[in-house]
Nucleic acid binder design. Structure first.
Length: 303
DNA sequence: AACCAATGCAACCGCCTGAGG
DNA sequence: TCCTCAGGCGGTTGCATTGGT
């Protein structure tokens, strides 16, 4: 028995003191046993009646994030990552709402994924995750790469988008997936564009998406290599893409310009590249299992 | 082998909301 | 209408693990 659980059971005089910190096996067992007999809810009552010296909140959190039978463990699949990126673009940090669309995943897990993986990329570029620039990078480079991953895995397994994480009715992320999977040669951007336009016109979207990207300038999905998210993008393509982004409709970026001087102007693109190089130089291929789509690969093609 | 930094994740904190008295 | 409290949520922290030197 751990020292924690020992102290839990031996100090009857400290019953009024609440325990904190990591849960012990004994505590987990108590909580599971209680919920199996009384069901979820009434967490304060559960905390007292079960003999746990924990707050009701703590019990609830432990159950929902760890003990609940349908909690999924392990790395997020590309499908799940794609869904998170998509839903976050719609709803922002509404983790619990996003989690509702990923069966078995908790809001805490999704929140951790966003903070540790996605925000890391933003830090690399010294841009805000809420900025339009970063959203565009996710939408037009990260997500297509995830789509390709999904496509590759589905074609190798003979299964197409049957992951349980894909909700019904079709979400926009799923439409992206479907569009990518069925895209005829040379039609990638068109299909993607149609899908995205549908999203932008979706009245259910809490957050209006104003994309100023010139879709005709986006590299086609079929041109993405299997060796990494951004290796295939030719030296001038991302710059061209950015020009499309930032010149097509400058009004959308006026606010951003204040904070993102280095990335605003295509002419300063090298600054961004050198900044990112200073932070990290190692490109780790196929890092999607860990959730990380390292954009450094894009810059490495240039050197 | 030892040390240090980075990372990932479980757990806590504080605020907000809604129900019930 | 006001007050209290439980539950829910997003943000933050702390620590164990991992990787690099």
């Amino acid at each position: 028995m751990s020292s924690c659980s020992k102290s839990l059971s031996s100090s009857s005089e400290d019953d009024s003191e609440l325990r904190r910190g990591p849960w012990t096996l004994e505590e987990d067992t108590l909580l599971i046993h209680y919920i199996s007999h009384h069901g979820e809810g009434k967490w304060n009552l559960a905390a007292k009646s079960s003999g746990l010296r924990r707050t009701g909140k703590s019990c609830r959190l432990r159950w929902l994030n760890y003990l609940k039978p349908d909690v999924k463990r392990g790395n997020l699949t590309p499908q799940e990552q794609l869904l998170i990126l998509e839903l976050h673009s719609k709803w922002g940090n509404r983790w619990s709402k996003i989690a509702q669309h990923l069966p078995g995943r908790t809001d805490n897990e999704i929140k951790n994924y966003w903070r540790t993986r996605v925000q890391k990329q933003a830090r690399l570029f010294k841009i805000d995750t809420n900025s339009t620039a970063f959203q565009e990078i996710i939408r037009f480079y990260w997500m297509p790469r995830l789509l390709q991953k999904i496509e590759e895995s589905s074609s190798s397994s003979g299964m197409i988008f049957q992951n349980s994480a894909i909700p019904q009715p079709l979400d926009t992320a799923y439409q992206h997936s479907a569009a990518a999977a069925q895209v005829p040669p040379g039609q990638g951007p068109l299909y993607l564009s149609q899908s995205l336009n549908h999203h932008e016109q979706n009245p259910d979207s809490d957050q209006h998406c104003t994309s100023s990207v010139n879709f005709s300038q986006i590299p086609q999905l079929s041109e993405y290599p299997s060796s990494g998210p951004f290796h295939a993008i030719a030296d001038n393509e991302y710059e061209t893409f950015l020009k499309g982004c930032y010149h097509a409709d400058n009004s959308n970026y006026e606010m951003e310009t204040l904070n993102l001087g280095s990335i605003r102007a295509p002419g300063n693109f090298e600054n961004l590249i050198s900044n990112s190089h200073a932070v990290e130089r190692n490109w780790v291929d196929n890092d999607f299992s860990g959730g990380l789509c390292n954009m450094e690969g894009l810059w490495q093609t240039r050197n």
